[in-house]
Amino acid sequence: PAIGRASQAPHPKYNAENFIYNQKTDTYTCPEGHKLTSNQSHYKTRNYTFKQYKTKACKGCPVRSLCTKAKNGKIVQRSEYAPYIEANAHRVTQNKQRYKQRQALVE
């Protein structure tokens, strides 16, 4: 699912989907190369849980105004369902013809 408008960065290059997740270290890397880490706390919403990732590097980052308007720096949230969403997106890109066929109307 797409990210809501309110969660998008002032410049599209710095939207959360452009941050790279490393499963082994459980960290994100921003487009500027800074590591965002989690405090390992799980937060709960009505329908799912998520973890938050942030870095202290935001304070001195020269492109901060392009990345976030938040006072305390950029926060990336990772849903418990993120691995499944990413796996599905990968399957769709690998089998475009099959998914195009599935979208066809049946009469």
Score class of each variant (00 low, 15 high):
T27C: 08
A82V: 01
G33Y: 01
S65H: 14
T55G: 06
N18T: 06
P62M: 03
S7M: 13
Q40D: 13
A2W: 05
A87Y: 04
R98W: 10
K24D: 13
Y43N: 07
E107S: 11
H34T: 02
L66Y: 05
A57V: 03
Y14Q: 06
Y84R: 14
F50R: 06
E107I: 11
E80L: 01
K71R: 12
C61D: 08
T93L: 13
A6D: 15
A87T: 03
K44C: 11
I20H: 14
N39E: 10
I75F: 09
G60S: 11
T45E: 10
V92F: 12
L36P: 01
K100I: 11
L66G: 00
R91S: 10
Y53F: 14
F50M: 09
Y48Q: 08
T93I: 13
I3N: 09
T27K: 05
T68P: 02
I75T: 15
V63Q: 10
Q8W: 03
L105F: 07
K51S: 03
H34N: 12
K44E: 15
K35P: 01
H34Y: 10
Q8E: 15
C67M: 02
N47C: 04
G4L: 14
P10M: 04
A57K: 14
K69L: 09
Y28Q: 00
A9R: 04
Q94F: 05
Q97V: 11
Q101A: 08
Q52G: 12
H42D: 06
P62Q: 04
Y84H: 14
K96I: 04
Y21C: 04
P10A: 03
A2L: 09
S41H: 07
N47V: 03
T68Y: 07
Q103N: 14
K71V: 08
T29Y: 00
Q94Y: 04
E32I: 02
P12F: 05
T25E: 13
C67A: 03
Q52P: 03
Y99N: 05
I75M: 07
T29D: 01
K44V: 14
C58E: 06
I85P: 02
E107F: 13
P83Q: 02
P1D: 12
T37N: 09
L105W: 04
S38R: 11
L36D: 01
K71A: 08
Y28A: 00
D26K: 07
A104K: 15
R98V: 13
Y48F: 12
G73A: 06
E17M: 04
Y81G: 03
V92E: 10
V63I: 05
T29C: 02
